[in-house]
Design a protein around this nucleic acid. Structure first.
Lengths: 203, 203
DNA sequence: AGTTTTCTGTACCCGTCAGTACATTCGCTA
DNA sequence: TAGCGAATGTACTGACGGGTACAGAAAACT
């Protein structure tokens, strides 16, 4: 399950190279559309290395990909995501999301697409690990709504869980549509709509 | 490309049986996760029939599936979807969407999941045909927003295209989350949020 | 230097799956 | 009842892809 007991600097570099390249390939063509040979060709490596660094095979590689992409995506939203407690911060958060996904080499969300493709596959635990990232992400939004309410910016009867769910859904729906429409516009519209919904609860 | 020059009633029934069963299998496990043998087993048929009725192979079958599911999904939203011109109609529409997806044998949206899985695959025209269904669906929502504005229920500076995009994104994001959370709640929250955004443009 | 461990490359195995070939049965019409 | 096309069943093929075996190169450690 775990890579060899220790990694030399060279080994760590190779492993990182594989993850980064595989992440982009999978984002572009999906897990099912990306073979281990593709990944090897994209990194100048072969199956030897792949199974050396990911003894669990493709499943373990995909797990590593999910972790990698989750960090990348969440980092792009910081520091706003962590401190959502005023209207200005929400706007900034929206801008950072738009900027991040607009600069990606491909449309769509690495985590969302992964979660969707893996849902209802053979291994439920596999899908669960990916959706755990989704839950964490959604949790940040819920905390933000909660902070807004605590600060008196939102009505007291606002349900942070529900509202965060709505914002999170809008975000991912917008990302799904960027995939099919090949444009950033749906994401912008979706986030504007989500913030309008948030504002409709203003105290 | 087209099935044999003519179909007997028996043949038409078999074809329909294949489409219906395949639709559910693909909804549950995705295109990549469903083999032609699976479909055969699920309908008591074999590859003989599959290629008899869909000479274009899996690609043609998937196209038929998309058409089938699109009609099914849009029909479930009628008549509200066609006549969105007052607040009550939007509420009814929301209810019909919730009822439909709540009664499905599996979570998620057949069209949305298909569009996401096919985006960035080998055949772009294949993905385009699926997303054409998405565009049509979105068009109904845009017309509804347009009607609301024409009726004076929304501010005149409201952009129906943008607003419909936001509502459509919320819908599909909610559906994506039903897949990962195995609950209808995210869809309900997403639609409530979308309608709140719509109401924020009330005249 | 020598030994051990990590790193890298290649060739192979085996299951799965889309697609094909072809034989057989069914159902209609003459 | 003969014949024709549609409908069905089965066995096969060829490619692809995940995974394994194993051998050689490169470091690290003593």
């Amino acid at each position: 399950m775990t890579p060899p007991t220790s990694l030399t600097p060279k080994g760590a570099a190779t492993r990182a190279r594989i993850v980064a390249a595989a992440a982009n390939l999978v984002l572009a063509r999906g897990v099912g559309g990306t073979s281990l040979d593709d990944i090897g060709a994209g990194t100048g490596t072969g199956k030897g290395q792949l199974f050396h660094y990911f003894p669990g095979g493709k499943a373990e590689l995909v797990r590593a990909l999910a972790d990698f992409q989750a960090e990348r995506v969440l980092d792009a939203q910081r520091p706003w995501l962590d401190t959502l407690d005023n209207w200005e911060a929400w706007e900034r958060w929206r801008d950072s999301v738009l900027a991040h996904y607009g600069s990606q080499p491909h449309w769509g969300c690495p985590i969302g697409a992964l979660a969707s493709e893996l849902a209802g596959r053979d291994d439920p635990s596999h899908a669960a690990e990916v959706s755990a990232h989704m839950d964490r992400w959604r949790g940040y939004l819920r905390d933000g709504v909660e902070r807004m309410r605590a600060a008196g910016a939102l009505h007291n009867d606002t349900d942070p869980e529900q509202l965060a769910l709505a914002i999170f859904a809008a975000l991912h729906g917008g990302l799904l549509l960027t995939q099919t429409m090949h444009s950033i516009e749906p994401l912008r519209a979706a986030l504007d709509g989500a913030l309008a919904a948030l504002r409709s609860h203003a105290a």
